[in-house]
């Protein structure tokens, strides 16, 4: 099951991969995809995996957090400022996340990055103080986002994804943090005027297959599935990166203003993010060793960058 709609590039790739796997395993492994969220949201899909109606689902990293809490490490606010940085960090941490999911009972085939979530709003927001006066939407009430909101001193308004457009129309909410692609696909951009160019968090999705179900197929077939699906996820990962850049440009073309915070504003954002990190450490929503690893990888990358740049 997947939340991606029929006809999207995700579904096309999934269907092609199902054909390839079927051919290469002599029809021993057949994969059926249910697109567009017809099986319910991620929570319902996970329940259906438990009773073995489904064997897996494509979902965002956050939905699987309870099977491996450190999978949410990229949700630490304002950790990154460029995709190059993300790429370096992911080359180190992605394999650990995949390993973690495996221990939690899910086979995954690599992460498909969804790009940064930016702050999008009806009124200009350039520093975190302004954010307090706004009605900020949150998709979930998990520990990691709660810790961040607490640091920013915001009480967010939780709404299911389906209610966000109406919420924006009726001013129930006026600020959201999401990726440009999602904002366009879900028509939220029609209600927004500003994008603040501060990468809040990094989003990704995986295809999670129940490990018990996966181990039931022949070892040779497992290898084929892993190979084909890993190839698909590498492609999807590359594709969504371009999509997000295009989407951001499309937003600008449609008259949405991209705001770049000043250096002093940026410092304020960073200060709040530090606070969020301290909260996360305290609440044990992420393990300290994982936070440490992220920080170490980032600083070694930054050091290398400043050494090589003139």
């Amino acid at each position: 099951a997947t939340l991606s709609p029929e006809g999207s590039s995700w579904m096309q790739k999934f269907r092609e991969s199902a054909k390839e796997i079927k051919a290469r395993t002599d029809s021993r492994v057949k994969i059926k995809y249910y697109p567009g969220g017809v099986m319910g949201d991620d929570a319902a899909v996970l329940k259906k995996i438990r009773i073995r109606q489904l064997h897996g689902g494509a979902m965002t990293g956050g939905s699987l957090a309870r099977f491996y809490k450190d999978s949410q490490v990229y949700s630490m606010p304002l950790k990154f400022d460029s995709l190059a940085q993300v790429e370096h960090v992911r080359s180190v941490i992605d394999p650990i996340i995949v390993e973690g999911f495996e221990e939690g009972g899910f086979v995954t085939f690599g992460l498909a990055g969804g790009g940064f979530a930016y702050l999008m709003s009806k009124e200009p927001i350039t520093n975190p103080e302004q954010m307090k006066q706004h009605k900020v939407w949150t998709p979930s009430t998990d520990e990691v986002s709660n810790a961040s909101f607490e640091a920013f001193d915001i009480s967010p308004i939780p709404l299911p994804i389906g209610d966000v457009l109406a919420g924006l129309q009726t001013d129930l909410i006026d600020t959201i943090a999401t990726s440009p692609v999602a904002a366009i696909n879900l028509q939220w951009h029609t209600q927004l005027k500003y994008v603040t160019e501060v990468p809040i968090i990094y989003i990704y999705a995986v295809l999670a297959v129940d490990k018990k179900a996966f181990k039931k197929i022949k070892a040779a077939d497992q290898k084929v599935v892993r190979e084909v699906m890993t190839k698909v996820f590498t492609q999807l990962d590359a594709e969504t990166r371009n999509d997000n850049q295009k989407a951001l440009a499309a937003l600008e073309k449609q008259g949405i203003e991209i705001l770049k915070p000043s250096a002093s504003d940026l410092a304020m954002w960073q200060e709040k993010a530090q606070l969020a990190e301290a909260n996360l450490m305290k609440s044990a929503a992420l393990s300290p060793s994982m936070i440490e690893l992220l920080n170490k990888t980032l600083s070694s990358y930054n050091a290398k960058q400043s050494a090589t740049s003139p």
């Binding site: 319910g40 949201d41 319902a44 329940k47 259906k48 009773i51 109606q53 299911p160 389906g162 209610d163 109406a166």
Partner: peptide, 13 residues
Amino acid sequence: VIAIDLYRIVQTP
């Protein structure tokens, strides 16, 4: 599965 799908009513907007 019936319990899962019956419960999905809570997500009705």
